[in-house]
Design a protein around this nucleic acid. Structure first.
Lengths: 278, 278
DNA sequence: TATAATAATGACCAGGTGGTCATTTGTCAA
DNA sequence: TTGACAAATGACCACCTGGTCATTATTATA
């Protein structure tokens, strides 16, 4: 485990500096002080490495903002500010990762990576949506999707500031500023562009079907990674079901929920939900 | 000239599909139906090709929105809507290019490309600023830089929609929606984050000094490209001045202004302004 | 038609890539 | 000290890269 983490941290530095494609496995091994063979003992491929990086950090990030939104103590402007704060704080703390993620998400053509990017994007959308519901309820039903996009735009454009110029910034002020803007838009904007149908279209676009074989492979991989636990147990049962179709939908649903509880395996829960068309 | 254009169009398709780094010169030549040698007759390197692409489209784009903003017939919400419309229309029309630009701008580590990206970013900032001044004048002095960033955020996040999902969209509605949002923020947002000093810091960050030799090289290259004209004449004079320092600042300033008039050479005008620290 | 000039070719280069695997090194219990 | 097992190594592989250049084909000129 220690070695895997070492490689990940070492590689992340290089990726942030030079980009994923431009960084060779050779460079990573030299920078980590290990041999090429040792690298391939920890990761099956260079692609698997970047996937692991994205999983690790995004699971953490999603679970962080999820907590903020779910906490009933956070209300009104306070919640909005904390939401932004958590985001930017997270980006700042893991700036190497944020750089890599922003760059590679736009850039990659690896199918699985795109799918992962979309997955986390949707998780964040869901959390944002739930926040907007809490804050404004009915009042923003017709503009909520546009609000999500505006919030995403704010996050994107302001995070560039501290990711690509290293100037110390007053995060508190930034969050107050953005919370004000968000609130203004939520309360007064009247012309929606993204309707429910449009949003659905985007969500569904590009969900290629997966073969049973592919799903099983991915499950098997995850099973190996996991410690003995309810999640692992659930995965093993689901794998069996993919092969034999023996479980009732309710049981499948429940097993997937089990898996979703572990932040480390939310991604695969998402995959399975899609696979089972739930 | 025809061959150069052929290669550029052919390459653009591949870049949009696969990305710049992932597309080899080999692929480009096959796709264009020419030999490798022929490619290098038109472009000194693969890098020069992408620079040419960016120059071509961005010069066009900048000059388009510049015209909209400069046109005195466009006022109020009309101007705002046309501003957005021109942007999205341009992105839609040249979607291959837009994809490449968005991806590669974030991704590249080529010094000159970064510099170019920053240049066009600043041009667009300037135009946006001038629009905000026209529309709101004194009223937005303290929030204008934040407004620029919000506008950029809107453009970024909504352009993704039609660049990466090909769904037909109602551009008019989109522009009305964004114009409303922009207007709301301009009129009511009160908490600025980006102060003049901060904005200056960002602008100045990462302007590496250039050697005379580098400047001369770039000028010479541009001189070759240009037809006989005032701009070419001006460039030749400026090249001499970089070598001999014989002209007065006023003359230099004037010559650079001449060059700036030609959209095709705005980029080099910007370089020279930086070089002369004007 | 003969000659000069230009355009186009593609075999070739050195260098780098992700990935493999026979071999060596290190670490235990017996 | 021995032997068994796992961990780690790095030479090696086939392949691909951006870029060059002697050679050939095409065109324009006389």
């Amino acid at each position: 485990m220690g070695k895997k983490q070492l490689i990940m941290e070492s590689a992340l530095e290089l990726f942030a500096k030079q980009g994923f494609e431009a960084t060779s496995v050779q460079q990573i091994t030299v920078h980590s002080g290990i041999s090429k063979g040792a690298f391939y003992l920890s990761f099956k491929s260079k692609d698997e490495l970047i996937m692991a990086l994205i999983d690790q950090f995004m699971d953490q990030f999603v679970s962080d903002i999820d907590q903020i939104v779910k906490d009933p103590n956070n209300t009104g402007g306070e919640l909005l500010r904390k939401f932004y704060y958590t985001t930017f704080h997270s980006f700042q703390k893991h700036s190497d990762f944020a750089k890599v993620f922003i760059k590679e998400q736009a850039h990659t053509f690896n199918e699985e990576l795109i799918s992962k990017g979309r997955h986390f994007d949707q998780l964040i959308d869901d959390i944002t949506l739930s926040m907007l519901d809490q804050l404004y309820g009915e009042a923003v039903q017709h503009t909520k999707y546009d609000l999500i996009y505006c919030i995403k735009g704010f996050m994107h454009v302001y995070s560039h500031l501290f990711l690509f110029f290293n100037v110390p910034l007053d995060l508190d002020l930034l969050c107050r500023s953005l919370a004000e803007k968000t609130d203004l838009l939520a309360k007064h904007s009247e012309i929606p562009f993204i309707t429910d149908e449009l949003y659905d279209t985007f969500r569904k676009a590009g969900h290629e079907e997966m073969t049973d074989r592919q799903v099983i492979e991915i499950i098997e991989q995850k099973i190996e990674e996991l410690e003995d636990s309810i999640e692992k147990e659930s995965l093993i049962l689901l794998k069996k079901d993919v092969q034999e179709r023996s479980l009732s939908p309710a049981i499948v649903q429940g097993l997937i929920t089990n898996i979703r509880n572990n932040p480390q395996s939310r991604w695969i829960a998402y995959l399975l939900l899609n696979y089972y068309e739930l």
